[in-house]
Design a protein around this nucleic acid. Structure first.
Lengths: 109, 109
DNA sequence: CATTTGTGCAACTATTTGGTTGCGCATCTG
DNA sequence: CAGATGCGCAACCAAATAGTTGCACAAATG
């Protein structure tokens, strides 16, 4: 169906649009790879909640998981992030144009 | 607590995490500045829905609005996007490290 | 083998979100 | 001035989200 690139991009941004998931990503980046249990230790929310967030990140392909014996390790896969970055950069190209229009808007007659 | 910077960043990403809003941003960038009514013309959803999305974008400071007589013009303000871009770039710096860990994770004994 | 440890699934609740309709008010324009 | 145009509430609804609890199952360990 409408599995357009736009939808996928929005999914990546939506996955990033949550403080908990943002924190998970930074923690995973720092540690390399962690289990959901390790990620939930000392945290205010339940392991189950963490797992759900990780599933969102996996669905957006921002994170990969790998079963290793008894435990499942999660790690950031930066490839999808590049897409998002490319989009923001593309917008940045329209920067000057947009700023020019903004100016003329404010100074409009 | 980590109240301000992380939360705001997540807000920007959350605002971008919706196909409708993504489309609004690109349309606004292309046109420079448009009213909510103009943005809703020919669209499937109501003007009110568009207004709500625009309010989300304004709250995330991705878009500014300027009253001009009877109508209100909306335009993209790219300054906030730079923050998001900076974050993704910061992650990109951990790229190799993360990829290295990913590799060792996959190849782990 | 019995126990601990980590994961997976399911049901349930509360809040947020995306959307609608209806209406009143302000502002241009003939 | 009278009508058209555009905006701003507010109430309401359905679906998605974030979180919980409870329990069962697989795998490492004494």
């Amino acid at each position: 169906m409408s599995n357009t690139p736009e939808r996928e991009l929005a999914g990546v941004f939506a996955a990033l649009g949550d403080t908990t998931r943002l924190a998970l990503i930074t923690r995973l980046l720092a540690a390399g790879a962690l289990t959901a249990t390790a990620l939930s230790e000392g945290q205010a929310i339940t392991r189950q909640a963490i797992v759900k967030h990780l599933q969102v990140l996996v669905a957006a392909r921002l994170v990969v998981h790998e079963r290793h014996g008894k435990e499942v390790l999660y790690a950031v896969d930066p490839r999808r992030l590049e897409e998002a970055r490319a989009f923001l950069t593309a917008i940045a190209e329209g920067w000057d144009k947009a700023l020019g229009r903004l100016k003329s808007l404010v100074e409009a007659p």
